[in-house]
């Protein structure tokens, strides 16, 4: 039931944004195609963000229940504890994205190439790991639900706007374009977009994937560090 809602939400985004920015596609300089097609990778990445950015909330609940402490007094490796949470979040999101992708295809969103669609799930995985790692680390650091949700919001929405998810880069002012260069969401959107447009191997895509791998690794190791020091 709950899983259904998490899928419905991005579909609503797709619908609303698709309608809202419909006419943008006719502006000069906009990549060819409908806005819906342009926004599709954005919808997928949004699903990732909303699905993982608050995964720390459940960690807090478990900390309050005492289950985490109970885990920490066993010889279980700390990385394993973090990885279990992060991979759980990522796998859930992958399934959501898969369903959204299928529904979007049924409704006529253009995705050229089956392999590209599947490869985009790799991007989804990496970004999910990265963001749920950050959320889990933040949960231990902040120790309260409210600031975690606030920061989760602050993290996801602006980062979303600072990427080419909704607006092509050519439309952006210079300073936002600079921010996109360090924004993992932008890399994920760009990579997904090239997969959907049939470009699977290019230097740009390779660089984007490497960037996302580094992002995921850094976030997981930070979260692990937070776990190790959580008693202090």
């Amino acid at each position: 039931m709950w899983a259904l809602f998490t899928i419905v939400q991005p579909l609503i985004w797709l619908l609303i944004f698709g309608q809202l920015f419909k006419n943008m596609a006719s502006l000069p300089g906009f990549p060819s195609g409908r806005y819906m097609d342009f926004f599709m990778p954005g919808a997928i990445i949004m699903t990732v963000l909303f699905g993982t950015s608050w995964s720390g909330v459940s960690l807090l609940r478990e900390i309050n229940f005492g289950t985490v402490e109970k885990m920490l007094v066993t010889p279980v490796s700390r990385i394993a504890i973090v990885m279990s949470r992060v991979i759980h979040a990522a796998v859930t999101v992958i399934f959501q994205c898969l369903i959204i992708l299928i529904i979007a295809l049924i409704f006529g969103v253009k995705v050229s190439g089956f392999s590209g669609a599947l490869l985009s799930l790799v991007i989804v995985f990496l970004l999910s790991v990265g963001f749920s790692g950050i959320s889990n680390g933040l949960a231990i650091w902040l120790k309260r639900e409210e600031p975690l949700v606030v920061i989760g919001n602050m993290m996801t929405l602006p980062l979303m706007f600072f990427s080419s998810a909704m607006v092509p880069k050519s439309f952006m002012p210079e300073w936002i374009r600079v921010i996109t260069m360090i924004n993992p969401i932008d890399y994920a959107v760009e990579a997904t977009r090239s997969f959907y447009s049939g470009v699977i191997t290019s230097e740009a895509v390779l660089f984007q994937i490497v960037f996302l791998i580094i992002f995921a690794l850094a976030s997981v190791s930070w979260a692990t560090e937070m776990f190790i020091n959580q008693g202090e």
Binding site: F65, G66, E69
Partner: peptide, 17 residues
Amino acid sequence: NKVRGSIGYVAQEAGVD
């Protein structure tokens, strides 16, 4: 890790799922 393997801990909050 050796300490962890040889002790049991029952915290104030029941840590059962």
